[in-house]
Amino acid sequence: MEVRTIKVFTTVDNINLHTQVVDMSMTYGQQFGPTYLDGADVTKIKPHNSHEGKTFYVLPNDDTLRVEAFEYYHTTDPSFLGRYMSALNHTKKWKYPQVNGLTSIKWADNNCYLATALLTLQQIELKFNPPALQDAYYRARAGEAANFCALILAYCNKTVGELGDVRETMSYLFQHANLDSCKRVLNVVCKTCGQQQTTLKGVEAVMYMGTLSYEQFKKGVQIPCTCGKQATKYLVQQESPFVMMSAPPAQYELKHGTFTCASEYTGNYQCGHYKHITSKETLYCIDGALLTKSSEYKGPITDVFYKENSYTTTIK
């Protein structure tokens, strides 16, 4: 009895394709271990004539594949690729409408935090270190965002349907971005203890939790000093293409032309909904596939993004 075979390709990165001759009487799992086709788990399936010449994702289970996976995804987590594939199996079914010149995501599976993050990423200057993220990001900007969303979920250790947080998501993504040249110098002034300067680099240099107003941050924000008295913390120097200011959701007025974009969060910790506000020729609110415009805006804002380049204080 002759062994019926077909020729397929296996890959971990969709760049390096490895030619395989597979036995049609055995499952993919018996031949390769966990195997995925377009995100779908085909591990328990036997090869079919229609699979001839198709590319299958496999887990990096030998040295060659491990090197290829690390170079593309910059992670050695053995569960990463499987999590990416199972997320992709959902995100490829989502709709990605162009809204006001940006790629958004039609609401499904509690994905409003991903839509808000995706919209924000198209408006701030950011370059990702893992080629996987950078490639998928370019495709997302062009309207094909399924891979990018699935990668975000995998890097953030999230599953489809789980509630997510924009600030946490951005923080994970910033860790995989090139923020080497970003720098922030802060000064804390206390009447009792004097003053202390701190220099922050990388992710810490672009994120701040405690106030939404970048102007206020430049002037000074009140913080408790270690001595128990009130101290003032203010920005001395900022070198970065953008800054992200966050605070627990509270009524906040966004003035046209003073910011790049913002995240609105309605609801409580267990259950809520994100919308995205962007400042173009007027203010726009993007909620999944829905767009509304207004000249002014007041609502429960939790993150505001500002364009920056270089700032030095005039406070002496």
Rank of each mutant, 00 (worst) to 15 (best):
L163A: 14
E162K: 04
N157V: 00
E52G: 13
V67K: 15
I45M: 11
K106H: 15
K92I: 11
Q237N: 12
P248H: 11
Y311N: 14
H176S: 02
C225H: 11
P224C: 09
H90W: 11
L173N: 00
L126Y: 00
T120E: 05
R141P: 01
T292P: 05
E144L: 08
W94G: 00
Y306E: 03
M207R: 04
T232S: 08
T226A: 14
L254A: 08
D287K: 02
M170G: 02
F305R: 08
K307T: 15
Y36Q: 05
Q20K: 14
L163S: 14
N16E: 13
Q122R: 01
K280R: 14
L118M: 10
T211E: 14
T226L: 13
P130R: 01
Y113V: 04
K106L: 14
E144Y: 11
G288F: 03
T116L: 03
T120C: 15
L37V: 08
A150F: 00
T266L: 08
C112L: 02
V221D: 06
P249N: 09
G82F: 11
R141S: 09
L200G: 05
Y297L: 06
Q122I: 01
V189F: 10
Y172L: 13
C193Y: 05
E264H: 06
T258C: 13
Y96W: 02
P97Y: 10
M209F: 13
Y84I: 00
M170Y: 03
Y252M: 12
D62P: 07
T159N: 08
P241S: 10
P34D: 14
H74I: 00
S104M: 03
D62V: 09
F242C: 04
G194K: 03
G210K: 06
S246F: 05
E204A: 12
N268K: 12
Q98K: 13
H48Q: 12
G29H: 07
I315D: 13
V203H: 10
V160A: 15
C261N: 06
V188I: 10
A117N: 05
M245A: 05
A205Y: 01
L291G: 10
Y234S: 08
D165C: 13
K158I: 07
G82M: 15
T11Q: 04
N157F: 07
L118A: 02
I301K: 03
K7S: 14
C285R: 07
G257D: 07
K280S: 12
E162M: 08
T312G: 10
S25A: 14
N14K: 11
K7V: 11
L254T: 03
S240G: 06
I45D: 13
S79N: 15
E125N: 10
T159A: 13
P131I: 01
I223N: 06
I315F: 12
V166G: 00
Q30P: 01
C285F: 06
P34M: 15
I105A: 02
A250E: 10
A87K: 01
W94C: 00
T232M: 11
L151G: 00
L114Y: 00
A115E: 00
I315C: 12
R4P: 12
T27D: 15
F259Y: 06
K280C: 08
T313C: 10
V185R: 06
G53H: 15
Y269E: 15
N100S: 15
H90E: 07
T258F: 06
H256Q: 13
A115N: 08
S246I: 01
I301G: 06
M1W: 06
I105Y: 00
T211H: 10
N89M: 15
D165R: 09
E168L: 09
I152F: 02
I286E: 08
H48N: 15
Y208T: 04
A146R: 02
E125P: 05
C156L: 10
E264C: 10
T116C: 12
S25Q: 06
I315W: 09
T278G: 03
E52K: 10
A154P: 02
N89H: 07
M207Y: 03
L151P: 06
A262L: 04
Q175H: 15
G143T: 01
V166F: 15
S310F: 14
G143K: 02
K158A: 04
G53A: 12
I45K: 11
D13W: 08
E125C: 07
K280F: 11
Y28Q: 01
K54V: 10
Q134V: 11
T266Y: 15
Y265P: 08
T35F: 05
L59K: 14
L290G: 14
N61P: 09
F174T: 02
D135P: 00
D165G: 13
Q175L: 06
T10I: 15
H51V: 00
G220Q: 05
T232D: 06
V12C: 10
F217E: 04
H51S: 02
G257I: 03
S240C: 05
T266S: 12
T258Y: 07
L65Y: 09
V189S: 14
L173M: 11
G161S: 02
L121K: 02
M209R: 14
T11L: 04
T198P: 04
E144I: 03
E162L: 03
K158P: 02
T75N: 08
M85P: 00
M170W: 01
A205T: 06
V221P: 02
T258N: 09
E264Y: 05
N129A: 08
A69T: 14
Y274W: 15
V243C: 07
S171K: 14
T35N: 01
V304F: 04
G194L: 05
Y57F: 15
K44M: 09
D287F: 00
M170S: 01
C182R: 07
L212V: 14
